[in-house]
């Protein structure tokens, strides 16, 4: 299926979802809005909590939330550039990445969990649930200049996760219930970590690795550096147990260097000393 065909199919639904624009942040400063699409799904709650609790604003972002009824139309909007980032189902997103769509996963979200007695024994069921979890994606061709916005977006989602985790279970359930406008909210496990190894497990479970793909194909589409930078930014502030746990689970390249004030050379001009 070529892009033109996708575009024709997606266009009506795109128009529909654009009419569903919701959750606009209060914003007094003039500036560009960051358009964040999200799936109408309880696993997208971090995006909505970040908006309602002012976490985007805390990160200096003016975010416009755009609701989508299905992942396919959301990913089409992301590809078309009508949204800047999107929170959609991971299984479908990985499927699109395997087909060559230039998306990069920058953060995780909520994954439905079954607490039934046999749930942990049924691997197929677990895999299916994992694939229905939410991840946040950006187009891979986003200019480097906007890396700061993406880090800010991810930091806001981490803040939203912290907000939910700091609520009592009863209050948290009420928060999620309110976001779903009264619909039944399943058990959801939230984790803003994009977690390459979890993505790899889903990727392998779906059999998406093609022999012709380079070994780091998936790694090139999971932008953990953004999550690590966002976490680093938040760790400058006071440490709390939620952040400490996220930090403990993240696998980030250690910030090893430098203590000196020496001139840093850039790739535009190397040292020939």
């Amino acid at each position: 299926m070529n892009f033109g065909h996708v575009h024709r199919i997606a266009a009506p639904s795109l128009m529909a979802v654009l009419l569903l624009v919701s959750g606009v942040m209060p914003c007094h400063a003039a500036g560009k809005f960051f358009r964040l699409g999200y799936l109408d799904h309880p696993g997208s709650a971090l995006c909505r909590v970040a908006a309602t609790h002012g976490h985007f604003r805390e990160e200096g972002l003016q975010v416009k939330l755009v609701k989508f009824q299905d992942t396919a139309s959301g990913l089409a909007a992301l590809e078309a550039g009508s949204i800047d980032a999107g929170a959609f189902m991971v299984g479908e997103a990985l499927g699109q990445i395997a087909k060559g769509k230039g998306f990069r996963i920058i953060a995780g979200g909520g994954t439905p969990t079954d607490t039934g007695p046999l749930a942990s024994l049924d691997e197929n069921h677990q895999g299916e649930q994992e694939r229905r979890g939410i991840v946040v994606l950006v187009p891979a061709n986003r200019p480097v200049a906007e890396k700061g916005s993406i880090i800010g977006l991810t930091a806001a989602l981490i803040r939203a996760h912290r907000t939910l985790q700091q609520q009592s279970p009863v209050v948290r359930q009420a928060t999620l219930q309110k976001l779903s406008q009264g619909a039944t909210v399943p058990n959801i496990h939230f984790d803003p970590n994009p977690d390459y190894w979890r993505m790899l497990r889903i990727w392998q479970g779906l059999g998406l690795q093609d022999a012709a793909m380079p070994g780091d194909f998936l790694a090139n589409h999971v932008y953990e550096e953004i999550y690590c930078d966002a976490l680093d930014r938040l760790l400058i502030g006071p440490m709390d147990p939620v952040l400490q746990e996220l930090f403990s689970k993240a696998v980030c390249t250690p910030n090893c260097c430098p203590a000196n004030s020496g001139r840093l050379f850039t790739l535009q001009g190397g040292s020939t000393q």
Partner: peptide, 9 residues
């Protein structure tokens, strides 16, 4: 040609 970086990542 040598290039100094501020972090390993």
């Amino acid at each position: 040609e040598l290039f100094q970086f501020g972090s390993a990542s």
